[in-house]
Amino acid sequence: MTQTPIRPDFAIIADWIRPQSRVLDLGCGDGTLLGHLANTKQVSGYGIEIDDHHIPECIRAGINVIQMNLDEGLSEFDDDSFDYIVLSLTLQAVRYPDRLLSEMLRVGTTGIVTFPNFGHWRARFDLLRGHMPVTRSLPHKWYDTPNLHLCTLQDFEGLCETLDIHIEARRAVDHVHQSSLGLRLLPNLLGEIALYRFGRT
């Protein structure tokens, strides 16, 4: 059986996760990441998803999926119930990103967040031309976007400082989720997707 290669951002997340740990994936989609982590790292845990059509997909993939709205918070999860809380390309679409970040570190030891970087040069270029950015990682028009709180790497790091969140690792990748020397040197300009691993200070 041939295995489709895993998305590079998922590969980076997988690299950050210890085997046999417990993972809560917020906005787990069709369960691809959790399935990958279960297969390669023997993790256990749950995916949270709101979208109807992803629920049977997750169930078919053997993923534990709980249908709920992240904007309601994580109050049904007890303190320190997971090793990792993952929020992949969802932070920008929740109503209270700051509260959710704090909640992530209440429920889990380590947080992992990825988001589209609004500071990417293409986004800046679109703004300079007087338009809301429409890029490969931000494909929606201003009027039909699910995104509520777009930010740059610098913005995210500023919020982490305010919330006393300790950033343990940072990566930036392009739209095909590849890394490069340029991305390491100028992540806020060249990075299309930002990846952070963080914990409590």
């Binding site: 256990s44 749950y46 629920i55 997750c58 169930i59 993923i63 534990n64 999926v65 709980i66 249908q67």
Partner: peptide, 8 residues
């Protein structure tokens, strides 16, 4: 820590 899925 049981395997559980939930749909609304």
């Amino acid at each position: 820590d049981l395997n559980v899925s939930y749909a609304e």
